Every structure is written in structure tokens, then in C-alpha cells.
Simulated assay, not measured.
Amino acid sequence: MAETAVAPGTSRVSSLLHDLQQLDHALYAAVAATDTPTLDTGLRRLSRAADNSKISLTIAALLALRPGRGRRAALTGVAAVGLASASANLVGKELVRRPRPDRAAAEVVADRQVPMPASASFPSGHTASAVAFAFAVSAGLPAAAVPLFLLATAVGYSRVHTGVHYPGDVAAGALLGTACGAAAVALFRSR
């Protein structure tokens, strides 16, 4: 019987991916198992408010009322949200097709839950859009960096807390959002 050749490093890569998936599931389970009744309502509301980038678009509308740098930052931020949303939802989720977490098996408290999206889990589109917006707006308005990145972090965490994403989905969304924010900034600086 002939032995099938395995590319060097293949077993190491698959072992690493397996370990990362195990860690991802363990972190998700730890969040689900942690009793946080004071946080549950607020994080559920934040997660819902971030649907369709409503928070970012509201902030952009307010910034657009300020002429000059505020308007330009708002426009760059909205472009970054559009790029991140398309990249996460039309490309990333379609390529990876990771199933959503099983909230019932993890026993995610009902008071935390938001409706489970029908789309794939990886990457988190909410996180990608929030981070892209924070990155793009902060490039034009540095004073906005800390509050916007704190908000983006809270949005990302809320997606794990409510049980609709694994932490790895959120981390990937943050990386994608950073890239999309940088691309939007570069596009607007070149004009």
C-alpha cells in the first residue's frame, strides 16, 4: 500500500487551527457561564443598536454638521463602514461559512440574547464596521479615537456576550475593520 504524501507542516497547521478553535469555544463558554445580570441588558441593547451600523451612522450624521474636518471624518467613516460591511458580509462570511454558536448548548442566559442572525458567524460584521468607523474617523479627528475605539470594543464584546459570535469571529472582524478603515483613509487622502 502506498503512503499518501503530506505536505510538510500540514499537521502542525491543522493542530494549531484545532487548538485555536478549542480556545475560541472555551472562551465563548466562559463568557456564557459568567453571571452578569447588571451587564446583560445594556450589552443586549448595545448589540441591537449596532445593527446596520446605526450607532456609527448616527455619529457620522452629527459629525457632518460640523464643517471642515468633522464633515470629512464623517464621510471617511461612512465609506469605511460600507467597505467593512461588504467585505465581512459579502466576502468573508461566504468564503468561511462558519456556523453560529449553539447558545442552547452553552446555556447563554435568555436575558442576554438578541435574535440569532441567519448569516454565517465569521467574521463579525458588527465588529468590522465599528472598528472601521473608529479607525477612519480617528484619522481625521484624533480626539475621537479613545471613545470610538472603546465603543467598537464594547460592540464586539456585546456580540459574544449575547451569544451570536465566538471571540475569534470578533477578533477577525476587528482585523478586517482595521484594514477597511485604513483603506478608506488612504482613499480619501489621495483625493
Rank of each mutant, 00 (worst) to 15 (best):
L63H: 00
L57F: 05
I55N: 13
T58A: 15
T36A: 15
R44P: 00
R45V: 11
R48S: 12
N52A: 14
A50H: 03
A50E: 05
R44F: 14
R44G: 11
S47F: 03
L62S: 04
L43W: 08
K54W: 07
T41H: 06
S47K: 07
L43A: 05
S56K: 01
L62F: 09
L65P: 06
N52S: 05
T38Q: 15
L46N: 01
D35M: 02
P67G: 10
A50M: 13
P37V: 01
L46H: 11
N52F: 11
G42K: 14
S53A: 01
I55C: 15
T58Y: 08
L43K: 06
S47I: 03
D35V: 10
S47N: 04
N52D: 09
K54C: 13
D51G: 09
R66S: 03
A49H: 03
N52T: 13
R45E: 13
S53T: 05
T41I: 08
P37S: 14
P67C: 12
K54F: 13
L46R: 00
R48I: 10
G42N: 10
A64M: 14
R44W: 06
A50K: 07
R48C: 09
K54I: 02
T36R: 04
T58W: 04
A61Y: 05
P67V: 06
P37E: 09
R66Y: 02
K54V: 13
I59N: 05
A64H: 03
S56Y: 11
T38R: 15
L62P: 07
I59D: 00
R44D: 04
L39A: 12
A60C: 12
T36W: 02
T58Q: 02
L43I: 09
I59P: 07
A50R: 03
T41C: 04
G42A: 01
R45N: 12
G42I: 06
R44K: 14
R44H: 09
R66G: 06
A49S: 12
P37G: 15
S47D: 13
S47C: 13
L62R: 05
R44C: 00
L39V: 14
D40M: 08
D35R: 11
R44L: 08
L43C: 11
R48E: 03
L65E: 11
P37D: 08
R45S: 04
R45A: 09
T58P: 00
R66M: 11
G42L: 11
T41Y: 02
T36Y: 08
I55P: 01
L57G: 05
S47M: 05
R45G: 14
S47H: 00
L46E: 12
L43R: 07
D40I: 06
L63S: 05
T38M: 07
P37T: 09
G42E: 08
T41S: 09
I55T: 03
R45C: 11
L62A: 12
T58G: 01
A64W: 14
R45F: 10
L43F: 14
D51Y: 12
A50I: 05
T58C: 04
I59F: 15
R66N: 01
S56C: 08
A60Q: 07
A60D: 01
S56R: 05
R44M: 11
T38F: 09
